[in-house]
Amino acid sequence: MGADLHYEPKFDGHRLVMWRTEESVRLQTRSGRDVTAVWMDLALAGMQLPAGVVLDGEGIVYVGGRVDFGAAQSRANSTPARARVLAADHPAHYAVFDILGHPDHGDVRGWAWVRRRALLELVLEEYGLGPPIQAVPTTTDVATAQVWYEVLHAQGIEGLVVKAGSSTYRGNSRQWWKVRHAETVDAQVVGYTGPIERPRALAVQLPDGRIALSQALKASLAAQVGRLLQGAGPGRTARTTAGDRYVTAHPAVVVEVLAGTTRHAVVSVTRVR
């Protein structure tokens, strides 16, 4: 392992960017969709931050002392009214792993990760931030990281994120990578088959650049993906690397697929990231 590597527990939730504006807090997904209304408890907590701060992290929900991805999914897919009911039973937490903007420094995405991490810790301490907003733990000690990987799995932590300390926020996959208990990888959705509102399968671009068609989606997953695809606009007919036909779509949707299937032409989608 390199001396510049930093290890963090990988929290299993919904990726959220938190923007503290002059008047309020806005939460958005990685694709840029505003989801403040269903994570209002986190937005209210973020009001402690100074205007101009932009954070990146995971919206997570604990159930029975465990990080519960299903509960986070339920929150993310709920209506604002339903989200208030869910929040009363299981309040959300925000596991922050990066800072992207600061009122005194502007856009800090070009800073090295170690410098951004120091700024993140300073902001959270200076403004008295605590639960439900907390920085994820980090270590450079391999033995500590190994303990986290083995012990925290029982608490719903799905693995580790490994980061090069010199990496910028625009860093590529060789600077940040994930070590999961489940052998899965993230893949970009580039198209679909079947009706757009409930696609039968997805065309995904795998980490090695190949485009492959997934196995048939489960009904609940098809409905979730369909809602995201409908804003992608009309597509065209294209073919996967293996020659299968699909309709193109570029909705900035990332899905998790089983890594063990990615050597073959067909992959299995497990969930939307």
Results as ranks from 00 to 15, higher is better:
115 R>N: 14
213 L>V: 05
36 T>R: 04
199 P>N: 11
123 V>W: 10
133 I>A: 00
176 W>L: 09
45 A>W: 03
243 G>H: 06
51 A>M: 06
188 Q>R: 12
223 A>F: 02
120 L>P: 03
119 L>H: 11
125 E>G: 06
58 E>V: 00
160 L>P: 04
196 I>Y: 06
9 P>Y: 02
135 A>I: 00
27 L>T: 05
41 D>G: 02
143 A>M: 13
174 R>I: 00
148 W>P: 02
129 L>T: 06
266 V>R: 15
28 Q>L: 04
121 E>F: 04
90 H>S: 12
154 A>C: 07
140 T>L: 00
219 A>C: 00
91 P>D: 10
179 V>F: 07
160 L>G: 05
244 D>A: 15
269 V>P: 04
225 V>D: 00
168 T>H: 12
148 W>K: 01
90 H>E: 12
244 D>P: 01
182 A>V: 05
219 A>P: 00
99 I>E: 06
166 S>F: 14
14 H>D: 03
173 S>A: 15
34 D>S: 10
140 T>R: 15
65 G>R: 07
216 A>T: 14
225 V>H: 05
195 P>I: 01
197 E>A: 12
263 R>D: 09
24 S>L: 00
90 H>F: 14
19 W>S: 10
265 A>D: 13
111 W>T: 01
162 V>F: 05
264 H>F: 13
266 V>G: 01
206 L>A: 06
125 E>R: 14
52 G>P: 07
8 E>F: 03
243 G>L: 08
121 E>Y: 07
238 A>V: 05
272 V>N: 02
224 Q>W: 07
88 A>F: 09
138 T>N: 11
112 A>V: 10
113 W>Q: 15
67 V>C: 15
153 H>I: 00
239 R>P: 01
136 V>A: 13
238 A>N: 10
112 A>Q: 15
49 L>W: 04
108 V>M: 05
96 V>N: 06
133 I>R: 04
255 V>E: 09
42 L>Q: 05
258 L>N: 12
33 R>S: 10
269 V>A: 08
259 A>G: 14
155 Q>T: 07
227 R>C: 03
122 L>C: 03
236 R>C: 08
152 L>Y: 02
251 P>Y: 10
